[in-house]
Each structure stands twice: as structure tokens, then as C-alpha cells.
Amino acid sequence: MGSGGDHRRGDLTATPVVEAARPELEKAARKAESRRGVLIALPAWAYLVVFFAMPLGIVFVYSFATRSSTGRTRLADWNLDAYRRLFDPLVFEIFRRSLLLALATTVICLLVSYPFAYYIATRGPRLRNVLLVMVMLPFWSNFLVRTYAWKVLLGSEGPISQLSQALGGEPIRLLFTNTAVLIGLVYGFLPFMVLPLYAALERMDWSLVEAARDLYATGWTAFRKVTWPLSRPGVIAGSILVFIPALGAYVTPAILGGARTTLMGDYIVSQFLAARNQPFGSALSFGIMVVMLAGTIVYFRTGARNV
């Protein structure tokens, strides 16, 4: 500060008093500014602490509580029983089934969406916008209604089965199977994959592909070495956006799945409604959340390294 003041000695504003006070003033201004930021955040912060952080804390606490013989939760005799039950073969089987279904949903969505998003991204600007709105339109309509539509379609008396019978075939019974749940999940979450993929492909520098082609790369090689790596962020974002809700899905399996296709979401809900085992249900929901967060972080880390 001292040497900085030397050449400004002739300047009227740079009197020694002001010079000395400046760091203090700046500090005070910065303080006031950050206080203002805290003040603006305060209402939302308070709301999220009360209606999000505290509920999360309560679930955590409940997961260590005991269940009395009548199904009530006693906040005493803290124990790890609920967590021990997570390693029960039955729970493991349900988790494995949910995980496989979520993975299958993600992979199918990716395989279908990539060429689809590629097609949209390579159209002219006007057509591109129309095509995008056509993707968004069903996406904005109610998820429950869209899932219900498949119940109508897949039922034993539904149009698909009728059509098959009219053509002299067997009645098709897909409803209440894992296949039906898979179809419903893909249908429900496909736009989550299409949109990030489209965003990544659309802002890609296509002259790089041209350059690869000019250097005698085949179409496939150019795709593998240029387009695919450049669209990786979209692939990662889309996969996470599909995988997470698919793993915790409740509505789709409840409508399209059968009694023998219990999934994680269904199982958790049943602990609170039918089985009345709140500590175990709490441990389950906490466990699935940790798995999801961990999965997301690992996926982001490895993805970021490879891009």
C-alpha cells in the first residue's frame, strides 16, 4: 500500500488519511455485502432446514429406533437391527432387481436416445425447434397419466392384445410383469436422456468431424474418436437423470408391475403403510439415498476424468 501511494501524492483524493482508512472501509463494505447475501438467503435457508434437513435427521434417528410388537416406533433402546436387516437375502434380491431394472432402463434409453438426439441436432434450426417441442410436449404432461396409458395399452383386453388376436395370434399379457415396468420406465424417463444428449450434440463443433473425415477417417471412426468423446458430458448427465429416478421408482411399478415384482420404492413404502416397520423403512430409505449419492459422485468423477 505504501509504495502504491507514492506516485499518487499529488492526487487530491489520495490524502494519507483516506489511504489509511481504505482497507478498513473495504473490509467493512465486504462484510456488509456478505451480510446482505446471508440475509437474502435466510428465509429459504430456514425453510429448508425445518422442512428438509430436520426430516432427514428424523429419518436417520428413526433408523436406530426399535419397533414395538404393535408396530409403533419406540425412540429408545437404540440399535443397529434395521441396518443389519439390509443384508438380508430378501432385501438383497429386491435391491438387485431394482438395480438391474434401473440399469436396463438407462441403457435402453441411451441406445434409443443417442441416434434420436443426433438426428434432431443435425436438422436445420427451424425444424430442430419443432422436433424439440414435440419431445417436450408429452414430457410436460402428467407422469401418472402417461404411465396409466400403458396400463390401457398392455392389458389383456387392451389394443395390443386385441390386435394380436385379430391377426390370429395369442392374447398378449404383458401387464404386471417386469417387461411392462421396463417399458413404463423407459417411456417415462426417455426425455431426461434426450434433452442433455441433444444439448451436448448441438453445441458440439461439427467442423472437427469434418476435419476427421478430411483426414480419411471413416464415418464410424470419426464418430468413435470425435463425436462420441465430445458428447460424453451429455451421456453422463442423461444417464444420471434416468438412473436415479428409475432406481427409486414407485409409481411405475405400482401401476404396471405385479405382486411378484416388488422393487425398492414399493418395498420402502410398504414398510410404512402395510408392514408398519418404521425403523427398517427409515434404514432402507437412508441406504438407497447413500447408494444413489455415492453412485452419482463416482460416475461424475470417472466421467470427468475420461472426458
Binding site: G265, I268, S282, S285
Partner: peptide, 8 residues
Amino acid sequence: PDVTMAVM
């Protein structure tokens, strides 16, 4: 997940 939020 929705289910966790609902339970919470």
C-alpha cells in the same frame, strides 16, 4: 429419491 423425501 421421491420415496425417501416422502418418508422423511
